[in-house]
Every structure is written in structure tokens, then in C-alpha cells.
Design a protein around this nucleic acid. Sequence first.
RNA 1: GGCCUGUUAGUCAAGUGGCUAAGACGUCGCCCUCUCACGGCGAAGGCAGGGGUUCGACUCCCCUACGGGUCACCA
Length: 552
Amino acid sequence: MDYNKLADLLFPDVDKETSYYEDLYPPRNLPEGAMVTRFAPSPTGFVHFGGLFPVLVCERLAHQSGGVFYLRIEDTDSKREVEGAEKDIINAFETFGIKFDESVVHGGSYGPYRQSDRRDIYRCYAKKLVSEGKAYPCFCTAEELSELRERQEAAKVVPGYYGEYVKCRDLTYEQVKKNIDAGKPFVLRFKSFGDSRNKIKFTDLVKGTIEITENDIDHVLLKSDGMPTYHLAHAVDDHLMHTTHVVRGEEWLSSLPYHIQLFRAFDFRLPKYLHISQLMRLAEVEEDGIVKQVKKKLSKRDKGAGLTSYIGEGYAPECVIEYVMTLLNSNFEEWRKANPFAPIEDFKFSVKKMSASGSLFDLKKLEDVSKNVLSRFSADEIYERVAAWSSVYDKEFNLLLTSDPDYAKRILAIGRGGNKPRKDFALYSEVKGYMGFFYDSLFEVSDSIPDNFKKEDIKNAIDLFIKGYDENDDRQTWFDKIKDVAAGIGYCPDMKAYKAAPDRYPGHVGDVSMFLRIAVTGRMNSPDMYDVMNILGKSRVVSRLEAFKNTL
RNA sequence: GGCCUGUUAGUCAAGUGGCUAAGACGUCGCCCUCUCACGGCGAAGGCAGGGGUUCGACUCCCCUACGGGUCACCA
């Protein structure tokens, strides 16, 4: 069989040699050890939270080694395409501060970065395989294939196009030509040279050394529409784009034997692989009337799992990234503890520290991490972020914030900047609830004083406090005066003394503080009252106290 | 079902033959304290089960159970 003749018959449209592309995409000029990674999604849906995993790994690996991180859109299957998904992907990751060096929009010397634009390239390489006798056309119809499958299932053998079951592998040139002339559609199949009885050892950078079975199936390289399957595209693209490290989900592990063969057939250098496990979520499943909690794969279909929806809910990108880092590298938290203010880029990301098993998305942990991240920001930084967030997601609050930035910053500065900063909120959406009472339009008395306190005591306390209140007092003087108020209404001014003999007093200085706090902030809990009062200013403090007194 | 792979507390996890099995989140308690938020101290809670190998197994091997992945002209 003259394979060159067959190749010409099958690919009359291909007019280039693979050497043309090899010259067009020479090895990248990068420093020693630089990694080239890629994120290669199919634009079939919106990016979900789990997508951050591989992306962050790729990004860190590439950028901390002085390499390149690019985005390649895998849209070889037009049937599944979703309008607008491509832009959403880029936007979503930009929101999280993840930048691609090369992509459809960023450009780059190794494009096109959309697989549907690389059709000619794949066909050229496919033709090469044919001309070397490593691939062949298959005219089997869908019906024939499903019949084959049924037969194999009935016989309890591994289903697939392999070994004795192949029909089109040894078609003669004349038979092929006859089919082509008759206009029969065909797929191009890989002529596998493997044997499923052979095991090969393979070292995955995440999974470690694993034993896999050699591929003996003649997989499809080109679909009948002339477009490549994932496998061919993977080999050709990652070769020509000079990817050094392929980071992908572990669902690809099972097709790895095939990929290894393919790379060998092309005489391509095999990249390093990192197969990472899926992020799981806890889901409630009802089974026989019993509700159980089970681990589920985080999927695109999950409501609210979309990356951008986290932003809407108020999660800060910095926090989400920080959380994902703690999951990706087990020593990240330790590093963060030692370097609280260092940029995340300073952390030495290590493939070795990645977990081989899947982890569960833990919202509580995310919140804890978030609180820590947000607590490290300065008042100015927090203000800028909350203002930006609320300008989109809470316009009413945004108006209040931005009408007096200095005022807002003074509020946000409470308890911030020291060794033990306050950690009041994990989400931007919680800020309004935290500081709302500083704004008259949001202020309302939502908590009430327990019934066991006499109204007269409360009124007297308020009167006494107003009488002595001087906004120029320092913290100690201010509190001493509250103690005086307590004493003035017969309450115990000293907490320790009260605890020693609680029966001797109707209340204590803490109770007096509570009266004032509820009157001024509307709540039982608030940040430091001295700071609160200073920021509110004497006239508003007094008027709130008076107003509260009148409701008693 | 075949093949691959995983299983350390509720969750995330250190750990590679010699430990009383780190740490973090969560939970509970105490302390600090004008409340809260911090912070500090402490408690409960774990090597899926069974066999080997070994002087000794969380660590190595086998079996079982339970997860996950995959078996397309989808990626």
C-alpha cells in the first residue's frame, strides 16, 4: 500500500508539510526551567469555582518560573458550543487577577488560540500520520458501531474499535477510493500499536507513579466533519505551542495511554502531566426517604457555583484565591502565618505539596480565610474595594459610602492595623450590616434591653451620661465617666467587684454600657463604643440617646 | 462490569517502618473584656475493615468495603 497516495486521496486540501508549522512555531525562547502551561477549556458553559484549581496551578507554575501561561479555546465540537462563554472565561479570571499571557484576545506568536481556527494544522498532521501508515480512514456508520458495541457487550469483552473487531484498518487503496468517490463520510482512526496485556509505568507529577494499561484501541483522530478530536488536538497543539506542563482534570488519566502513543507516533516530546483531582461539594441526597450528605463533584450545573456569582455574593477575589491556595498547597497557611502581608506571588508554589485526592469545598473555611485576608487591608484599601463592589451590587449603600469617603474610612479604621485586627466580615456584602448604624438612614434600634432592668435606671443612666459627656475626653476618662454613671444609679462600677457579689447590685457598669450601646447603635453588639461615639459626633450621640429615652 | 485511582477527626491536612499521630477550620469550655470582634489557654474527635511481611506498621504487600474517574465522531 502506498500510504502517500492514500494521504493525498484523503487530504486533497492539505498543501503544506508539517515542517512548515515546525518552522512557524520554533521552540520558545525562555530561560532554563521556565514552564509553559495552558488553560484549555471548551466554551460549553460558564466557568465554575472548580475551574480556579487548574488555572491557579498553571498560572503559578508558569509565572513563578518565568514562563508562559496561555489560554486555548477548545471548540472543536460545534454542537456543544455556548454563545458568549469564551468572553466569560476571560473576564471571570481577570476578575480574580489571573492574567493570561497569550490568548484569543491577548494575541501571541503561537496562535491561533482557538482550535476551530487551527483546522488546517490538524489536518496537515493527520495527513502525515496517514502517509506514514499510522492512521487510516474508517467508513463504519454509527449503526455498525453500535451493533459492534452490542456484540461486544454480549460477549462480555471490552468494547471498542480494536484488535479483531476493526473493519476498516486493512482496506485497500481501491476500496477506500471507491468509498470516497461514492461520497461516503469517514473518520480518521489511529492505528494503535499497543497491547492491552502490557502495563506501563508512568509518573504523573501529582498522582505519582501509576501503572496503566497500554492502549490498543484505534481511536478517532479526525471526525467526519474533518475536525480533530480532543486527543489529536492535544498532541498537536501542546507540541506546537511548546507546553511543558499539562495541567488537567484527572478524568483525562484514562486516556493518557492513548496520548502517550500519539506523541510517540508523531515523535513529539511528551510534556509533563499534572492530573489534579476534582473539587467536591457536599450535597444532600434523598434515598429511601432518608436525607444523606454525600460528596459531589462541583459542576457547571450547580446553581451559584459560577465563578462570577461569588463576586456578586460579596466574596473578594483575593480571599477566594487565598482559600484555593490553602487547598492546593498544604504548607500555604503556614507560610501565610509567617508572612501575613507578603504578596501571594512570593509563596513558593510546589507541585509536590499538591494533594492526590479530591478535596471538599468548605464554605466555613473560605469565610475564615476571607476574614483574615480582609483584616489585613488598610482602611483605605477596604474602602476602595467595598465602594467598587457596592457600586455594582448595592447602589444604595454605595451612595452613602461615597458621599463622605473620609467618614466611611474612619469607620472602617476601627480596630484595624494593630497586631490583633478586628475580623468582623468575610464578605463585602456583610459590611453594610456591620457599619450601617453609622448612617442615620440605616440606623434603627433592633435590639432591646432585657426586661429585668428598670426603665428609671436606664433613663437616669442616659441623663447622667449626657450630662458628663465631653467628646474631647480620652478613652480612659470617657470610661471613668461611665463608671461614675453606674455608681450614680446604684450599679456596680467595677466588674470584678460585681462578679464577687452579684446579688448586691441591680446591675453593673457593663449593663450601663449596654444601655448606651443599644441607644446609640441600636444593637447589643458593636465595635468599641468610644470610637463609635467619636465618629458619630456629640450631637448625633446625644440625639440618639434622647430619642431612645423617649421610647422607654 | 473491565481498567485506573483514592481512603488519617465533621472538613482541609502533615506524616514515607520506631510518636504521646502536627497544624488549620468548625464545635465546646475557660481567660481577657463595656458588648461584639480579636487574642490567649484548654477539651472532645482520627489512621475504613481484615489478613500478612517485620523486632516493630498510618507508613510495605494482599483481600474486602466504600468513594472518584473512564470505557463517544464530548471535551
